[in-house]
Design a protein around this nucleic acid. Structure first.
Length: 372
RNA sequence: GGAUGGGUUCCCGAGUGGCUAAAGGGAGCAGACUGUAAAUCUGCCGCGUUUCGCUUCGUUGGUUCGAAUCCAACCCCAUCCA
């Protein structure tokens, strides 16, 4: 077994659920799990400064290989001294491999065993991403964690296709590891397998053998019912080694996070809080609140009473709604701050609950009060 | 006082005899958003008992099988002339 630059330390397991309390040791610090990672696709968490992220308790953040590869390009980021220097974020960083773009840019791409041909959504030019290219680009970007290049398939998908795709993800994972040389960076593999338990199990086993530093669970929350996601997630997480971090990719919302923690997941990322914020929706302990709606025109309460975020400490629903109606950019910032704070604080409360041996109670009371 | 242009659904604005409850935009209202092609997208937007009925295009009256569209008078608005 090789020495990884990023390691997971299991601190405590909940005795009445799958929840785990842990620490992620990285070249840029040690971080606590379960953890939510804000997404900064293009080397910026949209609308926010690094200082604002630190203030809300942000630990590891995400950036995206595909997007930075297209613009500004790997050479430029490398010349800048890597992503940390380029965007001046001093804590943990993870780059997604571009595997999700294989899914989300479905109309603009062609997959082969060798890799994926993309038609750039920016200028239409042809671009090629393979396990080797994605790994090399991620080494140039220099995040603490690089993700193996995978294929994220849509839901629904035929078993036959899911099987071939899962096998491809495994062979791509091998190629990624073989190509990876950067010593102060670790690589996580990504489990696929669609909504098929047999494929999930196979994928988890094959990737575990490859001894990645941690494991992403991909291909979930792509449109399937939540119950199905949990059904797949539980066994998948269980099939992964206990001494490695488990990262449910692309999730999400508070209810999904608490359920996934319950099933043994340690890390999360999602565009949901920031995207939804820019579209006028706030996340709260009782579910979403569309602050843009007329109901809040004269509501001078904060988004959520008792919330410690900058937005809630200083501004009312009525004010934020006004900013949205007037299309003022401050509105986007205020809700982005609140939503990220909410999830970061939420995972903190989850950690405290696990530590205090009351995670099942925490989960139950949270879900009871939460409206979808 | 005279001349010309004009008054269209919350606003702007198209429409000049039937295919018009009336284009398009704005405003308003609501919904969606889960490893970011997203400060985006979608729907509603005269009223109602909603595959049908009713009311509406400055006002009143008229022509016509049929009028926002044609005619008359009147009331407003804009510009110009006195």
């Amino acid at each position: 077994m090789k020495q990884h630059a990023v390691t997971y330390e299991l601190i405590k397991e909940c005795r009445r659920s799958g929840a785990r309390l842990g620490r992620l040791h990285t070249p840029h610090g040690t971080f606590e799990t379960p953890m939510f990672m804000p997404v900064g696709t293009q080397a910026t968490v949209k609308t926010l400064s690094p200082e604002e992220l630190y203030d809300m308790g942000s630990q590891v953040i995400l950036s995206n290989t595909y997007h930075l590869f297209l613009r500004p390009g790997r050479e430029l980021v490398k010349k800048a001294g890597g992503l940390h220097n380029f965007m001046n974020y001093k804590l943990g960083m993870l780059t997604d491999s571009g595997g999700f773009q294989v899914f989300s840019l479905g109309a603009l791409r062609k997959i082969s065993e060798e890799g994926v041909m993309f038609r750039s959504h920016i200028d239409g030019s042809k671009q090629f991403l393979s396990p080797e290219v994605a790994t090399a680009v991620q080494e140039d970007l220099g995040a603490d964690i690089a993700m193996a290049f995978d294929e994220c398939i849509p839901y629904p998908a035929e078993h036959d296709y899911a099987k071939r795709s899962t096998e491809r993800t495994t062979s791509w994972a091998q190629r990624c590891l073989a190509a990876h040389t950067k010593e102060d960076q670790s690589m996580f593999g990504t489990v696929q397998g669609g909504m098929y338990p047999d494929l999930r199990k196979l994928s988890a086993e094959q990737l575990t053998e490859l001894d990645f530093a941690g494991y992403g669970i991909g291909g979930l929350s792509v449109g399937e019912p939540k119950a199905m996601m949990y059904d797949i997630l539980g066994p998948t997480a269980e099939a992964l080694p206990k001494n490695k971090a488990r990262y449910l990719m692309g999730v999400g919302t508070a209810d999904c996070i608490v359920e996934a923690v319950n099933l043994g997941v340690d890390m999360f990322d999602c565009v949901f809080p920031t995207r939804v914020a820019r579209n006028g929706t706030a996340m709260t302990n009782s579910g979403k609140l569309v602050v843009r709606n007329a109901a809040y025109a004269e509501d001078f309460e904060p988004i959520e009473r008792g919330c410690g975020c900058y937005t809630c400490r200083n501004f009312s629903r009525a004010y934020i709604r006004h900013l949205f109606k007037a299309e003022e950019v401050f509105a986007l910032r205020l809700l982005s701050i609140h939503n990220l704070y909410f999830l970061l604080d939420f995972t903190k409360r989850i950690r405290e609950a696990i530590m205090g041996d009351r995670f099942p109670e925490f989960r139950e009371s949270f879900l009871k009060n939460y409206h979808y």
